Structure formats: structure tokens, C-alpha cells
Simulated assay, not measured.
Amino acid sequence: MNLDGGGSSQMAVGTTLINRPEGGTAQRAIPTMLAVTIADSLPLLPPVYYNKVIDTGDSLCTLTGTGWTTSGISGFWGGTPSLICTTGNGEQYARFRIRVPSPGQYRVDAWWVAASNRANNTPFIVKYAGGVDTVRLDQSVNGLKWNSIGTFNFTGTDADEIYISNFAQTGQSICADAIRILSFDSLLTSAEKEEAGNINFELYNNYPNPFNPETTISYRLVTPEIVTLSVFDLLGREIKLVDNELKEAGYHRVEFNSSLYDLSSGIYLYRLSAGKSFLVGKMICMK
């Protein structure tokens, strides 16, 4: 803590100095204070377990329509300047493929550079598990920071997308800069996976997790494969052979119902094998 702004101030607890300012010529204790407050009283984000930002220069962002130009206003996110487009009939839009790691609830934010001629009802179109929602935000203000679009349950597939459309009724232009996806669920995004071999498929975290009694296990194959999907306890005993057949390339999902096997609360493993490769995920049954 430096109360006077100079380099000579020193933090102390009681009479014990805590740090020594670089280049300081004097050591003098100053008052310190520790405040304990309820976390909900502060406007802070809860712990973030997944944080992904997609910039307009990333491969997951594509532009449709002509007329997109670079904004000359500083403060854009990342290394790619903000892009602007005149308001119109919706034929111009920026598409963001978000590709979250597993199905579940995520918060979505948007970053832009504001200007007085920006639309105050820019459409942010979100495709998610519940369908399609359009959220209109005022881009003439609140620039140079993350603005909340909302919280959505995404499927964890390529069907999850966000569009910034030029179909606005006010202002001269809309801005596309960056989209941020956050998860505050440690179980949703941090389940460990063990893997072996050259992997040409993906195994997603089960959802919901924890679960009682049902949960969905999803995976994606790059090529057609004979797959084996099994559930085990932590002692390695197989509880259920969930899937064992030839599957086409693409996205697949399987329902697992713990009530059919009289499972107790605890951690269980699900193992997906295809060819000489396998992936293992962890899930929690909570009764």
C-alpha cells in the first residue's frame, strides 16, 4: 500500500516491514487495513473455469456480405481491429462458431469499440440448445469492455453459433470485434480425460454432471468407426457396456441411467474406444 504515491512509503503489519520499495532511500511504516466483506457485495465474477475469446481474425469467425471495413477507433480486442458494416437488412453478418468443450450453461459477452453513429439496437443472434434468441445491444456506448449478451445452455456441437447482424433500425453502422464464452462450473469444464493412441475422435464431458439419475455422454467421430463405450467404477469393474457398434462419422450421444444399476453416490469413469485409441472421462453420481 502506497499512500502518498512516492517510492519511500512502506507496507507494514504492526512494526514489521513487508516489502522494500526499489530505490527507496527511507523506510517508514504506514497504516494498513484488511477488510473482510461478503463476496456477493462486490461486483466481481465468480471463479471462471473456462474462458474462450473468439476475435474477428480467428478461423472460428467468418464474415458474410460485402461492405465490411476496418474501424479507425483504437481499443479493439486482440490483434485484429474492429470491423464495421453499415446497417441494413441482415444480409451482412459476422458468424462466430463457439465450440464449447461440453454441453452446459455458459455466459456470453461481446467486445466492441463504441461511436456515436453506432446502432443502439445491434442484433446478437444466439443459436443454442433452447433454440434461437436475438439480443439487441447499444453499441453507441459501453465500448472497450466486455458487455453481457446473456447466459445460454449450449449443446457442445457445431450447432452452437453467435451472429452479429447489420439488421439494426437505428444508427449508421454495427461493430463486430470479439466474443467471449465463460463457464463458472468446475465440473462442466475441468473433468480430466486420459487418452492413448492417435486420437481421431472427441469425447465430451457428460451433462449434467453431477447427475441423478440420468446423464448424456456425447462424442464425435472424424471417420466411421466401431466404437465401444463403457462405464466403470473406480476399481475398474465394468458397470455397463453403453455402446458397441459401427457408427458413422459425426456427433453421437448416449443416455446413461444410473437407477438401472443401483449405483451409489461417487465418481465413475466412462471409456470410449475406437480402433487402437481410447479416451476416458470422469463423472459424478450424486443421490
Score class of each variant (00 low, 15 high):
Gln169Met: 12
Gln10His: 10
Ala249Tyr: 01
Leu269Trp: 06
Thr70Gln: 15
Thr25Pro: 00
Tyr251Ala: 10
Val135Leu: 10
Asn205Gln: 15
Pro213Phe: 07
Leu272Asn: 04
Ser259Val: 02
Ala119Ile: 10
Cys85Gly: 03
Arg220His: 11
Ser165Gln: 12
Leu235Pro: 01
Ala115Asp: 15
Leu260Glu: 15
Glu91Cys: 07
Leu235Asp: 03
Pro21Ile: 00
Ser273Lys: 15
Asn166Phe: 03
Ile239Asn: 07
Thr80Val: 08
Ile98Leu: 09
Leu3Tyr: 14
Glu214Leu: 04
Val231Gly: 06
Leu44Tyr: 06
Leu3His: 14
Gln105Ile: 09
Thr66Phe: 11
Val13Gln: 10
Trp112Gly: 13
Asp138Ile: 00
Phe256Cys: 03
Thr216Met: 14
Ile149Ala: 08
Leu34Met: 10
Thr228Cys: 11
Ile73Glu: 14
Ile226Leu: 11
Asn89His: 01
Lys127Trp: 02
Pro81Lys: 09
Leu3Gln: 13
Ala176Val: 12
Asn244Ala: 05
Arg97Thr: 03
Thr86Pro: 13
Leu137His: 10
Leu188Asp: 07
Leu187Ser: 04
Pro103Cys: 01
Ile30Lys: 10
Glu238Lys: 12
Ala12Asp: 02
Thr170Asp: 14
Val48His: 04
Pro103Asn: 04
Gly250Leu: 06
Glu225Phe: 07
Thr223Ile: 00
Ala168Phe: 07
Tyr261Asn: 09
Asn147Leu: 03
Tyr50Arg: 09
Pro103Phe: 00
Gln105Pro: 02
Thr155Lys: 12
Gly72Met: 13
Asn166Gly: 05
Pro103Thr: 00
Pro31Phe: 00
Gln10Asp: 14
Thr15Ala: 15
Val126Lys: 04
Leu144Asn: 14
Gly266Tyr: 08
Ile199Gln: 07
Ile149Tyr: 02
Leu17Lys: 04
Val132Trp: 05
Phe152Asn: 06
Gly281Val: 01
Phe256Val: 08
Trp146Met: 08
Gly275Trp: 03
Ala159Leu: 12
Arg237Cys: 05
Asn19Ile: 00
Phe154Trp: 13
Gly266Asp: 14
Gly88Arg: 04
Met286Tyr: 10
Phe256Trp: 09
Val48Pro: 11
Leu229Gln: 05
Ile54Cys: 04
Phe256Leu: 06
Gly104Ile: 01
Phe154Cys: 12
Leu260Asn: 15
Phe124Thr: 08
Asn89Pro: 01
Ala119Tyr: 01
Thr16Pro: 00
Asp185Phe: 07
Ala119Gln: 06
Ser183Ala: 10
Phe278Pro: 06
Asn200Thr: 11
Tyr93Val: 02
Thr62Asp: 09
Ile267Thr: 04
Gly67Gln: 07
Phe232Gly: 12
